[in-house]
């Protein structure tokens, strides 16, 4: 089943300087993203995560090296077009991303802009609202939504454009725990459905469902691998400004004591099942 999946994004020796500055914000980054993968990009404040996110859909282009989307350099017109069409961004602040007064109209905004026929827009909007659990509030004014609902609305708007890949830049950081859980549940559903996802975050709680993690520190890639291998490092992650959450601490201690096997991830269900055996 594991045949070569299609390459969506590829970075080659990507470095980026903001105009007029001498210190690179991103240094010599390399990595590949294939279709259906869920990647987490981790790093402390100021590590360059958000600057990197803006490269994925050509809001920024590299100063040195290159970013390819479907094999096309984002510095070229073709590459920029492909990036904008296939990669959508969801940002941190739920209030800054809503353009329409009514929920379903906001979801329709993206596909309308793409010139999709209206019959198809209706279909897409319905599907996006259902996946994000907003179908019942589709007629509501957007300002009446909670923070978690607004952020799901931003995700719904992105999905309705049917991108190949969605990038979430700290999309849960302004939400309360309930809102965070709502977004994570939606992402898990989308991932199962085959969507390619990039989560940009400093919260290690959120990476257990990802396939692969990339850690940035001062703009350079310092680590790449599976969530499990990353979380095993425990307090070693503090060097990169990352803190292991308490549940992972429990998991780490139990692993060290030989009470949890290698396959068990720090998820409550898996841990309870494994400990009951």
């Amino acid at each position: 089943m594991n045949f070569q999946k299609e390459l969506i994004i590829e970075l080659k020796n990507l470095s980026f300087f903001y105009p007029g500055t001498k210190r690179p914000v991103l240094r010599d980054l390399d990595f590949k993203l294939r279709s259906g993968e869920w990647i987490a990009v981790l790093g402390a404040n100021g590590s360059g995560k958000s600057t990197l996110a803006k490269h994925f859909n050509a809001l920024l282009v590299p100063t040195q090296g290159a970013c390819f989307v479907y094999g096309h350099d984002t510095k070229t017109n073709e590459g920029q077009f492909l990036a904008r069409k296939n990669v959508t961004l969801v940002f941190q602040n739920p209030d800054n991303q809503i353009v329409a007064a009514i929920v379903e109209e906001d979801v329709a905004f993206g596909p309308e802009n793409l010139g999709i026929p209206s019959v198809e827009i209706e279909e897409r909007v319905k599907k996006a609202l259902k996946v994000t659990g907003l179908y019942d509030v589709r007629k509501r004014p957007t300002y009446t939504l909670s923070g978690g609902q607004k952020q799901r609305l931003a995700v719904a708007g992105a999905i309705a454009m049917e991108p190949a890949c969605m990038v979430l830049d700290e999309a849960t950081s302004m939400l309360d725990p309930k809102g965070r859980k709502e977004i994570n549940d939606v992402l898990c559903k989308l991932h199962k459905g085959g969507m390619t996802l990039i989560s940009i975050t400093h919260r290690l709680e959120e990476i257990v469902y990802c396939d692969r993690c990339v850690v940035l520190s001062r703009g350079a890639k310092v680590w790449e691998g599976t969530p499990r291998d990353l979380l095993i490092m425990g307090d070693g992650l503090l060097e990169w400004g990352l803190r292991v959450p308490p549940l992972v601490e429990v998991w780490g201690r139990l692993r060290d004591a030989g009470l949890l096997s290698d396959e068990v991830l720090p998820k409550i269900d898996e841990m309870v099942d494994a400990l009951c055996l």
């Binding site: 959450p245 308490p246 549940l247 429990v250 139990l254």
Partner: peptide, 30 residues
């Protein structure tokens, strides 16, 4: 999450305290 884990383990018969402290729960499970 640590409290939730403690609750779930108590439900299946573990004798662990209700706690939010990772180290306390880990020791109790051991």
């Amino acid at each position: 999450p640590v409290v939730e884990l403690a609750r779930r383990l108590r439900d299946v018969g573990f004798d662990v305290p209700v706690t939010w402290k990772a180290q306390v729960l880990a020791s109790a499970i051991e």
